[in-house]
Structure formats: C-alpha cells, structure tokens
Design a protein around this nucleic acid. Sequence first.
RNA 1: AGAGAGGUGGCCGAGUGGUUGAAGGCGCACGCUUGGAAAGCGUGUAUUCCGUUAUCGCGGAAUCGAGGGUUCGAAUCCCUUCCUCUCUGCCA
Length: 423
Amino acid sequence: MLSLVYLRENPTKAKEGLAKRNFSHPELIDQLLEIDQNRRALQTQLDEVLSKSNQLSNDIGILFKSGKKVEANNLKVETLNLKIVTKDLQEQIQKIEADLMSLRTQIPNIPEDIVPSGNNEDNNEEVFRTGLIPEFPQKALPHWELATKYNLIDFDLGSKITGAGFPVYKGKGAKLQRALIQYFLDKNIDAGYKEYQVPHLVNELSGFGTGQLPDKEGQMYHIKEDNLYLIPTAEVPLTNIYRNKLLSNKELPICMTGYTPCFRREAGSYGANVRGLNRLHQFDKVEIVRIERPDNSRDSLDGMVDHVKNILAELELPFRILKLCGGDLGFTSALTFDFEIYSAAQERWLEVSSVSTFNSFQAERLKIRYKDSEGKKALVHTLNGSSLAIPRVVAGLLENFQVKSGIKIPEALIAYTGFEMID
RNA sequence: AGAGAGGUGGCCGAGUGGUUGAAGGCGCACGCUUGGAAAGCGUGUAUUCCGUUAUCGCGGAAUCGAGGGUUCGAAUCCCUUCCUCUCUGCCA
C-alpha cells in the first residue's frame, strides 16, 4: 500500500511509475486524492464539534460539583444537538475511510527506476548467466520420467490421496528433498539469517499485511470454518512476525529464514508447463526475509541476489538472473530478480527463486516502523526471496545430472543426502 | 469443548464514571558526576489524524485488545467478538 503523503505530494511521479507496469487505472489516483481531501474536510468538522462537546462536558462536571444543578441541566440540552451532528459526521467518515482503503488496496507498488518497462515476461532483462548446459549423447529424459524410472516420486499416488499437484516423494526422492531443505537452511543461517518455524496457516490480517489479500484471494486455500488461509509462501508468517512493531535503529537489519510447505491453488494454470514438478499445489520452499532501513534496502537486495547466486553455483546448475519488467512485476514488488535454472531435458528455463524488494509497500500495511538515529519514526523496507524453492531444483538436478548409470548428486549435497548416486 | 480470571504506554504495573494520555517502576535518550565505566543524581521519553506554520513549534481530535451501547461525560458500567492464562474434558 502506498503512503497517502507520498501520493499527495507526487501524484504525477506515481502515475508515471505505475504506467511502467501497465497499471490500467491511473484515474484511481485522482479519485483517491479527491476522497482523501473530503475525508480531511470532514475530519476537521468533526474535530471542531467534538471539541465543543468536550468543553461542555467539562463545564457540566464543574457545575455539578459546585451544586449548580439547574445550570448544568441547561448545558446538557445543548450537548444533545452536538451528539446528533457527531454521529452523522462519524458515519460519513467511516464510509469515506472504507472507500479510501478499498482504492488504496487496488493500487500496486511503484517500480524502481531501473525496472525496465514491458508488458510480459518477454520484456524481462537478463542480467546474468552462468554454467554449462550439459549435452547428452542420447535424448535426455524429463524429470517425471526419471522420477518413475528411479522410483523417486509418485504423482499418481498423490492424486489418489489428494489430487493432482500433490506428489508423493519416496526413498531417495524423499531424502533428496529433505537434504535440500537442510542444505538451504544451513546456507541461509551461515549467511546470518535466523531460522524460524512458523505456522502454515495464517489469519486474514497476516494475509492482508504482506499483500496476498485481497489481491490473490483466489490463489490461497481458505479454511472457512476458522477463516484461516494456508500459506502460499513463508514470506507471509515470517514478515508478519514484525507486524505492528516499532523497531530501534540498532535492531535492523532483521534477517529471517524458514522452511515451510507452500500451498497454491494455481487456478487457471494448465498445459505442458504444469507437468511433473513444474507447478504444484503443495511444494517445499526455504525463504529468506529481511527488514531493512530504507537507505540500505537496495544494497541488501543485491546481497540477497549474490547469496542465491552462490548457492546455485555450488549446486553446479546452469542458471540465469532476470530483472523483471514492469508488466511482470508482482503487485507488491518494486524490483524483482528471478533466478531460472536451465533444464536440459525440457529445454526450458525453470524459475527457482524470486528475490524482491517491496520498499515500504508492505510496511505501510503491516505498520512496521523504526526509530532512526535522530529518533524519528519511519517505515522500514521489507525484502524477501526464495532460497530456494525445492521441486524445480529437484527437477533441474535430475535432468541435468542424469548419466547412464543413474543421477549424480552434486558434491555440495552429498554430505546431506548421504549418497552420491541415485540408481 | 465446559468453568473461572484477565487483556492498560517499548516492557512491568496502578487505576471502578468528571483536567487520567493515564501514578509508580524498568528500559531508553541527554546532562551532571568519573581518569574511564558502573552506581548515583537531574531532565526528557506513546501513536495516529486534522488544522496552522518557511522551520522549531502551536492548537484541536482520537486511541487503555477490537467493535457497538448507556451517559452531558467511559480505561472505569452494559453487550458482542478476538486473544491469553488457570482448572476440567478430549487428544497428538
């Protein structure tokens, strides 16, 4: 959510920024500012009326104390009118504030200057690429065939128990998953992130805080009985740890990591791209979240990108980094770098991490603030990234490291898997 | 799930209808003290909104879990709801 003060002072800049992400309703900004102005006028009126009745109440109290009952009762009559006016104004303000909020939640974050403009993923900018794309003597098998061949993952069993998109991992397949989770967590902890185990269900306020609600309402599994949502990412519970917090300067930055399963309804997804592990309703992910001072958030983002880079390099996977264009940017993000590993067998890039800064967009909703060195209060910046999402890394490992005799485990993982080969 | 108790500032905690935005303490900041630190002493220390102002500031309003109600006036009384704790029940 964008701050009202910012929008009031920079309406043109805001519209220009939003144009970069093809925001189709720039007139909402004008509407919002108009409503805001009405709200302020009403607030002024209300404050004046309340001030009067406070004064009267005070006088009445004094009169009663000194036994002047008649005069007190006269004043009482006066307050009755004020009460009616107050009630009316309060109702108007309540309504206008609801309108304001609904408008504010429809306006996405403003992209950073360096975000390229563009409509869709074709306009994303590749900023880094590394690793050798393996060449195979025969045709390489896709991971879903390898998974069956080596008895690692059972998709049918998952459908039987739950439905499509809920795979069952078996034997070395299950161990590989667990090894990766552990490996990623260790990497993150070594880099200074504190590990958390968080709830996998969150309430409405948490969903609103990080921006999943109301924007992605239909993408989350919702338990109506208790009005709770299954988390689509650990970002939600992790960031909400600090909801409504006033932090001191020296507490920042806050670096958190956590492993959770992630649940996504993926309504509207279809086709070959959802095959195998490519798109699941439930998957495992290790997330990193940072809460930063505004002046440090860009450096911090670079640091997170480097961190994920190092992990992928250590896993010996070929990958590239994309700077997302305005049109491909998430609703809450101001700047996002996507990591994609190359899958030799599928001959396509698979997104395994998305690292973003939200600037103060989430902090505004979450009310996470800090006191700077001069004691002034300001909103923090929030950032997060996957470090990393498991299934597509598994897909990449299986497909890229297949050899005649099986699948080779990269050096860095062997200590975690306890085996060097899947065969 | 049933019974009871409770939710007050960054934290602890007093406050049962009228200058209570809220005593006291802790913490924090600054100053004095000290060779330096600690202790001690002193001062200060909530947030949001509206208005005003070049700025410091000033004036007003709201906020004692949340929402509603009673009253001229509510942290204090009533209702609803959420949460926490204790006991009982159920259960990993």
